[in-house]
Design a protein around this nucleic acid. Structure first.
Length: 382
DNA sequence: GCCGGACCTAACTG
DNA sequence: ACAGTTAGGTCCG
């Protein structure tokens, strides 16, 4: 999710499953197009007569991929109602705060991305992930003269010289985390090990859903197991493990407790005193379990909504404080579909710019709930 | 199990 | 100009 970039006015692009996906949103629809690599590495030699072989509509899985990736199935309104009914603070802090969905990202990419995220800021995380793709990921194609690479495989990052190179690229101490974790996954545990930690209800793209176990305050058994297993990797603590569980493995009850959530827990949920005065592993579990008990099986989703709402409120307080006289333009809603981190970057940079440079003309602000996906446009060749 | 400190980096703060 | 702080933590002793 740290890889999405603005490819044009009002258009965002990223590689996904071997193709470049671009999105544009208007008042009623989310438009997408997919650009496939002109020369696939393994083209079936049997049917390669045409220089511009178009993919038959039946064979194009892009729409299914998009639906899967953006996790569009769950009923947002119903869930918001449920969370608001169970939690007065949620009701107060996150009303009408639509447009936050939990992406179903590739487990391996999520793992490395969140290892990069530790004690770090989003713009640097993005550039780090971008550098991983640029130097170790296969080239998929170009868009507006910009190269688009896929995320590197575990084997590509397991190369012995990776760590030194990443340090040169400014990864800091995370270079070692990435190199070690890549070696463990590539040479020891295997990528299937990681993928098999997925919630069977929302498996990696292309596989059939299978019911998962029963929900409890500590989370389903599969979730607890996945969280536990991930902790064995270097650079993966409880928070990163939960991020991977939630956004890479589809365990919706996972509640990542970072410093910000910890602040919220102390301020609004009576944590931070007595036995839970500091964020120890025990406190971490208590906080996460408390939110699971409160919000239920989709606790991780509710957590992201509350988190985003809170950060936005904070951001607006800051803006109001710095820029007292200008209050005409207010960001009203986030574009749907983007993952939380992505949203936060955009709002914050937008606000910063406005405050500092009086930069007008930011991204158009749309109040939409996009549930409809239409207009498949496909391109082939170059 | 719980604490305190170190840890890469870049942008921001006083 | 420049030390201190912060950013969606983790590891080590």
């Amino acid at each position: 999710m740290f890889r999405w970039r603005k490819s044009a006015d009002d258009e965002w692009s990223c590689t996904l499953h071997g193709r470049i996906l671009s999105f544009r949103q208007d008042a009623s629809h989310l438009h997408y197009r997919a650009v496939f690599p002109s020369a696939l590495p393994t083209p079936p030699p049997s049917n390669a007569p045409s220089t511009h072989p178009s993919i038959a509509a039946e064979e194009d899985d892009t729409l299914a991929l998009v639906r899967h990736y953006f996790n569009l199935e769950p009923n947002l309104a119903q869930l918001y109602e449920q969370w608001a009914a169970a939690d007065a603070n949620f009701k107060k802090k996150a009303p009408n705060f639509t447009g936050v969905r939990i992406l179903r990202q590739d487990p391996w990419e999520a793992l490395i991305g969140f290892i990069c995220s530790s004690n770090n800021n989003i713009s640097r995380i993005s550039s780090m992930v971008h550098n991983l793709c640029k130097h170790y990921g296969p080239l998929i194609g170009h868009l507006n003269d910009e190269a688009y690479h896929d995320f590197p495989t575990p084997a590509a990052l397991a190369d012995p010289e990776v760590e030194a190179h990443l340090i040169k690229l400014g990864f800091g101490y995370r270079a070692k985390y990435i190199a070690k974790t890549a070696r463990m996954v590539a040479e020891e545990k295997g990528l299937t090990w990681l993928n098999n930690l997925c919630n069977p209800e929302s498996p990696i793209f292309g596989r059939e859903p299978i019911p998962a176990g029963a929900f409890s305050e500590g989370g389903r058994e599969g979730y607890q197991n996945a969280h536990q297993e991930l902790l064995a990797l270097h650079g993966v603590g409880p928070k990163v493990a939960d991020c991977v569980c939630l956004m890479g493995l589809g365990w919706s009850e996972s509640v990542p407790v970072d410093t910000h959530v910890w602040q919220i827990a102390q301020r609004d949920y009576k944590f931070g005193r007595g036995k839970h005065s500091s964020l120890t592993p025990a406190t971490y579990n208590a906080v996460a379990s408390h939110f699971r008990k409160l919000w239920g099986k989709e606790a991780g989703w509710a957590h992201s909504v509350l988190f985003t709402a809170d950060l936005k409120a904070f951001s607006e307080r800051v803006t109001a404080k710095v820029e007292v006289k200008e209050e005409s333009v207010v960001i009203k809603a986030e574009p749907d579909g983007m993952q939380v981190e992505e949203i936060l970057v955009k709002t914050e940079t937008a606000k910063r710019k406005r405050v500092k440079k009086e930069d007008e003309e930011e991204r158009p602000i749309v109040e939409v709930k996009t549930e409809v996906v239409t207009r498949s446009k496909r391109r082939k060749g170059r």
